[in-house]
Simulated assay, not measured.
Amino acid sequence: MKYCVLITDGASGWGIKEQGGKTALELARTPNLDKMAKNGFMGQSANVPPGMEPSSACACMSLLGYDPEIYYKGRAAIEAVSMGVDVAPDEVVFRCNLVSVIDGKMASYSAGHISSEEAAELLEAVAKELGSERVKFYPGVNYRHLLKLKGMGDTAKALCTPPHDISDREVSPYLPQGEGSLILNQLISSSQQILKDHPLNLRRQSQGKLPANSIWLFWGSGPIPPMPSFKKAYGLDAVLNSGVDLLRGLGIMMNMKILELNGITDGLNNDFSGQMRGGLLALGDNDLAVIHVEAPDEAGHAGSLADKVKAIELIDELMVGQLLAYPEDIRVLVTPDHPTPLELKTHVAEPVPFLMWGKGVASNGVSRFTEKEAAKTGIIFEKGCNLMQAFLK
């Protein structure tokens, strides 16, 4: 039998007052998910352990069957694995976003979803002025990059706030604070002077686009501990595809095969159909495929109900439809990793709905894939890392 895990990042959320208290999942037209739900098994999963950050790093680690309380030591280090950046014992790595700060406020945590090509040019300018043997910048995808500091271990103790947690807020209260924060603030401030009048930013502004006029540092961490491979832990050969470095990093840490596909992005321009098609084709040589879709979460961070609903509907039409039509015995797990309420534009650590469907799965009487239907079952995995084992039984 084959297995597929479809992670709909951030698709869960809160009821929206202006929409009669309905969530994006309830508002979306999802005939394929509804068909699965009626013939499947639903419940809730708490993927973020108490006291830990409600990040995709913690939540997706749980969903993939590993306990974040044991293995999670910081998100930036996971992304470094994906990007092939080694982190030595005396080094600290940080996520380094390119952001837009306008009139002292966080106008965009993604610099208006700047392209990878433009971002690389701007980061190169920052690295030329601020980089050294002890300070190194690494370009990533779109606005997401890395900074590595050598011999500055105290920076890992600084209190840092992700920029997507402070959309439209004054940034000054959320700059790095406490022990180790001085060098981080110096780098942020210096980057603003470098980027302010960069020709690319001037061109973006003339086109009505937001300038990428600052770096923002957060999620600092040192080397990650070794993890048992997915094959050793669960006895299956697994393949993973995602449009973001975080999930690829987790897959590499778990010794999963990383499936490279064209057209896979973090937004509505993602090739949803191609992503699922490629994942299912990869099941020919593997037992389990993990397909991670970032678009609902990006819409949540942007506070766009229309985009979040659209992302969910595209997943239903172009991805779930393929799962229903798969010609061999298959078992499917569909679930967000965490909620991303539109009101907050960031993550919360609440349980999310999960849906199991396919070979050997008995129905437990739900009608739709929504938060309310999942809660009505009374079934909850208090430790989300145990869901994978239940799915593979």
Rank of each mutant, 00 (worst) to 15 (best):
P162M: 01
I252S: 09
P54K: 11
K150V: 10
G278V: 09
S56M: 05
H338I: 01
G263M: 14
P163R: 01
A282Y: 01
E328R: 11
L387T: 06
G112I: 07
G40T: 10
D237F: 05
G208Q: 12
S242H: 04
L98V: 01
A88R: 14
L280E: 02
K231T: 10
L184R: 10
C4D: 01
G321P: 01
E373M: 09
A325R: 12
P176E: 13
I224F: 10
G40Y: 10
C4R: 00
S82W: 08
V5S: 01
F94W: 14
T340R: 00
H301L: 04
G104Q: 10
P54L: 12
I78Y: 07
P296Y: 00
D287N: 10
P336I: 05
Y143N: 03
A77L: 06
G249M: 06
L195E: 12
S167L: 03
G267E: 13
G360L: 04
K2C: 00
R169I: 06
P211D: 06
V352W: 03
K196A: 15
A24E: 09
Q322W: 02
F41G: 04
S100R: 08
H301C: 03
M256H: 03
L236V: 05
G222C: 10
A233T: 11
L146T: 11
A46D: 10
K383F: 00
R203M: 14
T155S: 15
H145W: 04
E294N: 05
N97Y: 00
P162Y: 00
G153T: 07
S132I: 04
T155M: 07
A107I: 07
L64K: 02
G378W: 12
Q389K: 15
G251Y: 09
K359A: 12
A362W: 06
D90T: 14
F369D: 11
W216Q: 07
P226C: 02
L123V: 13
L333I: 04
D287R: 06
K17D: 10
I194P: 09
Q275A: 04
D237I: 00
L280P: 00
I194E: 08
D297Y: 03
E53H: 03
K136W: 01
G51F: 10
V334T: 09
E18Q: 11
